[in-house]
Simulated scan of single mutants.
Amino acid sequence: MSNMEFANGKILASIADGVGRVVFNQPEKRNAMSVDMWGGMGEALDLFAEDPGVRCVVLQGAGDKAFVSGADISQFEKARSNADAQQEYDRITGAGRIKLANYPKPVIAQIRGFCMGGGLGIAMATDIRIASDDSQFGIPAARLGIAYNFDMVRALVDLVGPAQAHLILMTGDRFPAAEAERFGLVNKVVPVAELEATVAKLAATMAANAPLSLKTNKQTVKAVLRDPADRDLDAIRAAMAACFDSADYREGRRAFMEKRKPAFTGS
């Protein structure tokens, strides 16, 4: 197991048993995302992307109060004081957002406590969201006098539909975990005591599967959600062909016939 720190310790990263883990580590501010934390998250994701031993990534918040409660509002006066400042803020933090949105490996959000605003944006950019039953969700933009960018709103609409997206955005209310599950914001809600084990089991299952298959299936799901003109179907066909030509596919067939667990290598 290896442990790393980024953004002056506000982003923690570790690798164990094929799973890379990123921890948002600002519990005194309910893990609100500072500008530096966006950069640190991007660095950790880059490291995991380049490591063939990392098959799956888990994002979580430090402590028991929040996954990510949103952006660090203490930076708003300087970093997001007007439209021009907001554009610069988006430029600085955009690298981390883009990396997460386009990440090739499976990503799970392990959510406990507050998952609000930009924190919900991070969660929505992951592939699977598992929440504890004491979690709370919301986008309080209307209470701050701001609006969210197209990509985040589109992700929200893709998950919950336009009617629930209007409710979430126009009220700025907090919604309990059970309601978030009903909306489609999260895949599953579990008791607090079961959250860690549930995510660990899910991550281990994904880490044991064929990496090329995981990457290609994720790529295809992402393409389905894009406008037809933005879909690179040639790239998807090439990725599919690589799966069928891979050593892992041969290993998968042999393991099935021999009634044993496959040992995939990602090649």
Rank of each mutant, 00 (worst) to 15 (best):
M170F: 11
G96R: 07
I130V: 15
G18E: 00
G145L: 04
H166A: 10
S132G: 13
Y148W: 07
K218Q: 11
A263D: 14
N25L: 05
T171Y: 10
S34W: 06
L195A: 02
E77G: 14
P191N: 03
G118W: 01
V186M: 03
V107N: 02
D134C: 04
I168M: 07
R253I: 14
N31S: 03
R254Y: 04
M41Q: 09
N102W: 10
T198G: 05
E28F: 10
Q86K: 08
S213V: 10
A66M: 13
A204P: 10
A235C: 04
A49H: 07
A204H: 13
D151P: 05
V157E: 13
Y103W: 11
S34K: 06
G94F: 02
G53N: 13
L120A: 06
A95V: 14
Q60T: 06
V57L: 11
A62E: 14
K105T: 03
C115F: 08
V192Y: 06
G18R: 01
G118M: 09
M33Y: 08
I128F: 14
V54N: 10
Y148N: 00
F264H: 00
N217H: 09
M152H: 09
R254I: 00
H166V: 05
D72Y: 14
Q87C: 14
V153C: 05
A223Y: 03
Q87W: 11
Q164K: 11
L212K: 10
D232E: 08
G20M: 02
L45Q: 08
M152W: 11
D234W: 09
A44H: 10
K215N: 07
A62K: 07
R21E: 04
G20E: 05
E43S: 09
A197G: 13
R80Q: 10
T205F: 15
V57F: 09
